[in-house]
Design a protein around this nucleic acid. Sequence first.
DNA 1: GTCCCTGATGTCAGGTACTGCCATCAGCCT
DNA 2: AGGCTGATGGCAGTACCTGACATCAGGGAC
Lengths: 204, 204
Amino acid sequence: MSAPAIGTLYGMARWEPGARERLQAAALELYVRQGFEQTTVEEIARAAGLTERTFFRHFADKREVLFNGQEELERFFLDGIRAAAPDASPLEMVAGALATSAGFFADERRSWSRLRDAVISAHPPLKERELLKMAALAAAMAGALRARGVADRAAVLAAESGVTVFGVAFTQWIAEGETRSLAEVEREVLADLGELAGARAAKR
Amino acid sequence: MSAPAIGTLYGMARWEPGARERLQAAALELYVRQGFEQTTVEEIARAAGLTERTFFRHFADKREVLFNGQEELERFFLDGIRAAAPDASPLEMVAGALATSAGFFADERRSWSRLRDAVISAHPPLKERELLKMAALAAAMAGALRARGVADRAAVLAAESGVTVFGVAFTQWIAEGETRSLAEVEREVLADLGELAGARAAKR
DNA sequence: GTCCCTGATGTCAGGTACTGCCATCAGCCT
DNA sequence: AGGCTGATGGCAGTACCTGACATCAGGGAC
């Protein structure tokens, strides 16, 4: 259970460290270059200097290799909800989660995110996995909201709306020419949603 | 391209008609009885009196066999949007789509829907496919909203919110003991969403 | 009636994703 | 010195899915 000695000064490890990261980098690169279906797991593994068998020890399947920081992202969102004011409304808690989550996506990540998103959007199997991750995120947020005393129905609706806002904001954040931070865009989209729900006469 | 003679009085067709439906019924039954992963396509095909190869002529993959009426469901939603009043707000158009869509789920379908939903919810691969279908539905609705003059951002938000409401309402509709129609439940959930977005001080 | 076309199905071969099981072997601990 | 640990490799096997070709009843053309 102790952490392995990675890159000590006194000797090479038995294997090149960072196998997992090498696999992820190789997979993204290959998926971009030649498409998801045209890339075999064997190919990815060899590009990372490993075997197919080892690939499946690090990732449950061929898609999962592109979905890593999920637990961490989830932690950001949940922390945001837990840090909300005691008397905040459900949507305010979600707004807090969105604000916190933006910390996960620093500006340096933008172009990498753009690349990754392009690959995922271009391949339905990858899109499916992403949707599942987002659904899990929404479910976790709903749980956190319930833990804060929000009623069941409201918790689910608020959480799902939060994920929707995140998705729309994220798409805008990686759009060509967009320079604002994710947090800024999220605030704008959230405001749009409020306007949409509040408007009774406004169209277009 | 002409319709095949199904069940004429003058002779048996070369093959038992309704192959597609038999495959769907067999698949659902087997998925329920022994689980999705424990069921092979070969098994489904044999249960329907066909071969594995024929299964894949009717359905793109092992999951797709449970997702059939997608185009029809989509048509219901889109018709609802197209039928909305010219001066309706985006959310009102979505409300119209929801109301129309409820026509797709007559009360006789409720227990079948419950069974199908239980299987899908219990198996992540199936859940993934369902999420993809719902995302496609949202995208189609957003397109229909844009065609009605709704701005891009608002169209996407309204469409995604509509799908969220549909999902929550559907879950409630198939809940044990629920007797109201889907349309009624949808109205309630939609009202809850409005309350959530409009409330600035209301909690729990 | 004969011929040919159509279309749903079957058969077969093959590729790829994924899994179970066992072997290997550097580094660490005792 | 010896044994344990843990990441890896090798190999066999199952199941998903596809392409190519064969089969053959029904129906239309003549």
